[in-house]
């Protein structure tokens, strides 16, 4: 079932033209996708468009058939899509639990305090982090741990789509495997649509579909 659709997308930055050109892609629930390609090829740009963080120059992005231009992008980001940024984008002075709670509050999900605590514990279990980390400020955590908190945050409100930019970039191979396992499980067991931007062939090979981009165009 198609959840995200790119129709004749092209994109230019004010200072750089045709970063993306004539992109047509369909993303389905229950599948995990990889986007690979040379540096500067436009992968992050594509992910930003999918996340509703930026607006296409031409063409449309459809979420469940609705043009993102016509729906509330903030609501879309808060509820329907979980983004794991390359640089995590957590608030370092807040604890893991607080970072997650913030996203929960932003999504408008109403749950009681004990329920929330339980949910956070579950999420930490999912990303293989000990529960004590809930109370640790994110700034005091290692890159891999932060990465996992960022994933937990992206999952907490149960979005249908998960977008991850180089989620394994700075991780050792064991942790990389852990994370990949989480993403595959999410796609296959929980029927999410997972889209991962990566440089790693290993990672790409695990995915159901592999998309390759070069100079703003899809080459396979």
């Amino acid at each position: 079932m198609t959840v995200l659709q790119l129709k004749d997308i092209s994109y230019s930055y004010p200072t750089k033209r045709n970063v993306l050109q004539d992109i047509n892609l369909n993303f389905e629930k229950g599948k995990i996708y990889s986007i690979t390609g040379k540096s500067g090829g436009g992968k992050t740009t594509l992910l930003s468009l999918l996340a509703g963080l930026d607006v296409t120059t031409d063409g449309e992005v459809l979420f469940n058939g609705d043009d993102l231009d016509k729906i509330d992008r903030y609501k879309y980001r808060a509820k329907n899509v979980g983004v794991i940024f390359q640089s995590y984008n957590l608030l370092p002075s807040f604890t893991a639990a607080e970072n997650i709670t913030m996203s929960l509050d932003a999504s408008g999900m109403r749950i009681s305090k004990p329920q929330r605590k339980e949910l956070i514990n579950q999420l930490l279990d999912v990303v293989n982090l000990e529960r004590e980390y809930a109370k640790v400020p994110v700034g005091h955590m290692s890159g891999g741990q932060q990465q996992r908190i960022a994933i937990a945050r992206a999952l907490c409100y149960g979005p249908d789509v998960i977008l991850a930019d180089e989620p394994t970039g700075n991780l050792d191979s064991d942790t990389q495997d852990d994370i990949l396992e989480i993403f595959t499980r999410l796609a296959h067991d929980e029927n999410k649509c997972v889209i991962i931007v990566t440089h790693s062939k290993e990672v790409a090979e695990v995915c159901d579909e592999q998309i390759r981009i070069s100079k703003g165009r899809i080459i396979s």
């Binding site: 509330d72 980001r77 984008n89 913030m102 996203s103 932003a106 945050r153």
Partner: peptide, 12 residues
């Protein structure tokens, strides 16, 4: 940066 994070997680 904090503002960016809020906007990123969908706070308008």
């Amino acid at each position: 940066y904090e503002i960016g994070v809020y906007l990123g997680i969908g706070v308008n």
